[in-house]
Amino acid sequence: MTELWSGAHDSLARVVTWPAPDAYVLVDGLLLRALPTGVDAIPGRWVRLAFDPEQRRLLMTEAEPDDAPPNAGKQGAA
């Protein structure tokens, strides 16, 4: 599982659930668990993922405004 998480490092993801304390994010059709760090993990928000080898988990950080895919605001976009 660690290989999967580290493979998601620096990926753009979309928040699917509210954090409690973690949230689930969608990356290329795969649902992954990540810890919000300095970002409001509101469902639908685009975030950037980072793998923390010490904690052995994914952390989500704020995505740049121009990072979101071009169809991010369109109905039916994942």
Rank of each mutant, 00 (worst) to 15 (best):
L31Y: 05
P19F: 02
D10K: 11
T2P: 00
S6A: 04
K74W: 06
P21H: 04
R56C: 10
L59H: 11
T37D: 05
D66S: 13
D67H: 00
E64R: 11
V47C: 14
W18S: 03
P36T: 12
A23P: 04
G73H: 00
G38R: 03
I42K: 08
L26I: 04
Y24A: 02
E54A: 15
N71I: 11
P53Y: 04
T61S: 08
A20N: 09
D66H: 14
A78I: 11
A68M: 01
V15P: 03
P53K: 06
L59I: 15
A77K: 01
A23C: 15
T2M: 11
A72E: 00
A23E: 07
A23G: 09
D28K: 07
F51L: 06
V25P: 08
R33N: 15
R33L: 03
R48Q: 15
A68G: 03
N71D: 12
A50I: 12
D66W: 12
A63L: 00
M60E: 15
V27E: 03
D22G: 03
P69C: 10
T17K: 01
E62D: 06
A13V: 15
V16R: 00
K74F: 12
E54S: 13
A63S: 05
A34M: 08
T17C: 01
A77I: 02
L26R: 01
V16C: 00
D22N: 09
V15L: 05
T37R: 13
P65M: 02
V16A: 03
P65A: 07
T2I: 13
T37E: 05
F51I: 08
R45K: 04
L26F: 01
A13C: 11
T61C: 09
Y24N: 06
D28L: 11
L4K: 03
D66K: 06
W5C: 04
V15I: 10
D66G: 06
A63M: 03
P21R: 02
R48M: 13
R14T: 13
T2L: 15
D67F: 01
V25W: 00
A77L: 01
P43W: 03
A13H: 05
G76P: 01
E62T: 10
W18F: 04
H9G: 04
R57E: 14
L4Y: 02
A77R: 01
R57H: 12
D28E: 15
G44K: 06
L4T: 11
G76D: 00
L58M: 08
A68Q: 02
E62P: 04
S11W: 07
T61P: 03
P70E: 05
D52I: 13
R57K: 14
L35Y: 12
L4R: 04
V27I: 14
E64A: 15
P43G: 15
L32P: 01
D52R: 05
K74P: 00
A41W: 09
A34D: 09
P53C: 08
R33K: 11
D66Q: 11
I42F: 08
T61D: 14
P21I: 12
W18T: 03
